[in-house]
Amino acid sequence: MKNKTVIITGGASGIGKAAAELFAEAGANVVISDIDSIQGDEVIREIRSGGGIASFFKTDVAKPEQMEALVQYALDTYGKLDIAVNNAGIGGEQNTITDMSLEGWQKIISVNLSSVFYGMKYQIAAMLKSGGGSVVNISSILGAVGFAGSAGYSAAKHGIIGLTQTAALEYSAQNIRINAVGPGFIDTPLLNAMDAAMKNQLIAMHPIGRLGKSREVAELIFWLGSEKSSFVTGSYYPIDGGYLSK
């Protein structure tokens, strides 16, 4: 990973933070983006204190002009873009379809799905200029199945897989690989609002008997970003403790 430049959206916490740390440990130039600049700056300090190379760029991924600016920042700072991890997302409004607000639907589609399109639009263009790269889009197990009360989230995560497969068809012959990762329920700040009883219900849905850890997902992201996965493109990789096997 030395001299490789990586963009990670939603890199201030959870899976994104774990991925940023792993890429930095391997010698990559890491550009973390997030809407939370305070936590983002803290992650940068931690990485630099460990000898890693990292920068922070505040980004609202739902705004295409900010996603374009993020890519330009990576190019201006490190000269090229080799790997992009489109990880930023929200849980969004939990409601049945008839009760879901239009605003809630639009927000989750913008943040979780449109952002991945915006990211790839500018990331791939930059990679084409430097001869190739790897894009890893973070979907979910709910990109493969439904989940009552999460219509917006599930629709967005299904959409990420379709975007990933289409992009792979369009650009793999030009040395740009695009893949998707489907985490199960991971013990991240996204679950902090849940009480113990609800968390235990989630744990029971995973045959492995626990929630996943951010570092475990980061290891898969890292592999897909690296040359060790050089023949892998257009794929969707669940990492779910057996959730989808039921």
Rank of each mutant, 00 (worst) to 15 (best):
G241R: 06
E42S: 15
R48A: 13
G212C: 03
K129P: 03
V31R: 03
E21Y: 09
L81T: 11
N192Q: 14
T164M: 11
N87L: 02
I8V: 14
Q201I: 04
S37H: 10
D82F: 09
G212Y: 09
I221A: 03
V116C: 06
P189H: 11
D99L: 11
D41F: 00
L224F: 08
F185T: 15
K213C: 00
A148T: 13
R48T: 15
N179L: 12
Y118K: 05
A54M: 01
L191I: 02
S245Q: 12
S226K: 03
L163D: 12
A156C: 11
I178R: 12
V6Q: 02
V61L: 05
N86C: 07
N95S: 15
R210V: 02
S101A: 03
T166L: 11
L163R: 09
M127G: 06
A62T: 01
S13V: 05
V181Q: 05
K80S: 14
E227F: 00
E46N: 13
A26L: 11
K157Y: 14
N112V: 02
I176S: 11
T98D: 15
E25V: 06
T188V: 10
A218L: 08
S245H: 03
D240S: 08
H158K: 04
V6Y: 04
A144C: 03
A173Q: 14
N95F: 00
G27F: 09
A196G: 00
E216Y: 02
I160W: 06
W105V: 03
S235P: 00
F185D: 15
G104L: 02
G51A: 09
A28K: 05
F23D: 05
S154D: 14
I90F: 08
T77C: 12
V85E: 11
S33E: 09
G146R: 02
N29P: 09
A180S: 15
A24W: 09
V145H: 08
S226I: 08
I186K: 13
P207K: 01
G79W: 04
A28V: 11
K246S: 06
